[in-house]
């Protein structure tokens, strides 16, 4: 009987320019190189079977990302971690390996940290503009999906965001819907804020901190 395993990893630095599809390929090669006793698909082109509970968008870093697979022989979790870290490219790092505690369908939210500055603005000025966006009547933005596009109001999420600043940066801490039923990409929030404030960002740096269930508990 194959045993399900959940691997937790960070994705940062140059690896944030890697799309989900490319990450999938990178991970498949890594588990092959690490020679893990991983369960392969039975199809004509057999390949290691891995899934990602919550795919991460390109340009977004991740602190606590999950990847699921099954193993066919017993192997210590720490050994999986160490073997993987030997063969992964820089910017992808396994933190730990565990048994899956929650079902993937329990993912409801994700917490993000967004560092940013508006063009020609100090971190304090950026902070003030962001705060003023909270007073907006709405923060409407067009969300494009495979089925077409629709206008959504992201104000409810932005209202509850914590915003702070230091000397160099302004930082938004925000929780957004994540998962198969409802999903909002943090870049949508940024687009909405740009539209409302009629300003452009000088740079943005988005990191997904963790995945959460519907009770706002960390996904495990």
């Amino acid at each position: 009987m194959a045993q399900p395993v959940r691997l937790w990893f960070k994705k940062y630095g140059k690896a944030k320019f890697i799309s989900h599809l490319d990450l999938n390929r990178t991970m498949i090669r890594a588990v092959r190189m690490a020679k893990l006793p991983i369960w392969y698909t039975e199809g004509f082109n057999k390949h290691p079977y891995i899934t990602f509970p919550a795919p991460l968008s390109i340009f977004v870093s991740g602190e606590n990302e999950a990847m699921d697979f099954k193993i066919t022989n017993s192997i210590k979790f720490a050994e999986i971690r160490d073997k993987m870290n030997k063969v992964l490219p820089q910017g992808i790092e396994v933190i730990k390996v565990s048994e899956p505690v929650m079902k993937v369908s329990m993912i409801h939210w994700a917490q993000y940290k967004i560092e940013l500055l508006f063009e020609n603005c100090s971190s304090m000025e950026t902070y003030e503009i962001l705060q003023s966006c909270k007073n907006a009547e709405n923060l409407n933005i067009e969300k494009k999906t495979k089925k077409g596009s629709k206008i959504i109001d992201v104000k409810q999420y932005f209202m509850n965001a914590d915003i702070c600043y230091n000397q160099t940066n302004t930082v938004i801490d925000i929780i957004l819907p994540c998962g198969s039923t409802d999903n909002i990409n943090p870049s949508l929030i940024l687009d909405a804020v740009q539209d409302y404030s009629d300003r452009k960002f000088q740079y943005t740096n988005i990191t997904r901190l963790m995945l959460l269930n519907d009770k706002m508990e960390q996904f495990q």
Binding site: K14, A15, F17, T26, I58, V87, P89, Q90
Partner: peptide, 20 residues
């Protein structure tokens, strides 16, 4: 890094691949 979000396939330009 600043211009990579503005182009298609930034993976062409960022380096950092395995065995580089």
């Amino acid at each position: 890094e600043k211009i990579l979000p503005l182009v298609q396939k930034p993976g062409r330009y960022c380096g950092g691949e395995l065995n580089s």
